[in-house]
């Protein structure tokens, strides 16, 4: 389920490579090895949830009607690498 949420809401900006603004921005800010969201190991689930709900710099916010609290919880844990 978390993978589906990621594909629908995150992949268009955070998939690897050019044409994905989130990846490009993270590469310019933190370097190639911290550019692809799914490869990151330094992000906490709480931080991810907070950024999704409030946005961060170029990233807009996502509402509960877009990503429910349940889906957000699963997505945040998925991206933080928590089982």
């Amino acid at each position: 389920m978390a993978e589906q949420v990621y594909q629908k809401w995150c992949s268009h900006c955070h998939a690897p490579g050019i044409g994905h603004p989130g990846t490009q921005r993270l590469e310019w800010s933190f370097g190639k090895d911290r550019a692809v969201l799914k490869d990151r190991t330094d992000l906490s689930a709480d931080y991810i949830a907070q950024v999704v709900r409030n946005g961060r710099l170029e990233m807009p916010s996502f509402r509960p009607t877009e990503i429910s609290d349940t889906d957000l919880d699963a997505l945040a844990k998925f991206l933080a690498g928590e089982k």
Partner: peptide, 15 residues
């Protein structure tokens, strides 16, 4: 549909 043009707001950073 694409979100590629969204990268334009990375030009000077800050969003």
């Amino acid at each position: 549909p694409t979100l590629a043009e969204f990268n334009s707001i990375n030009w000077t950073g800050g969003g």
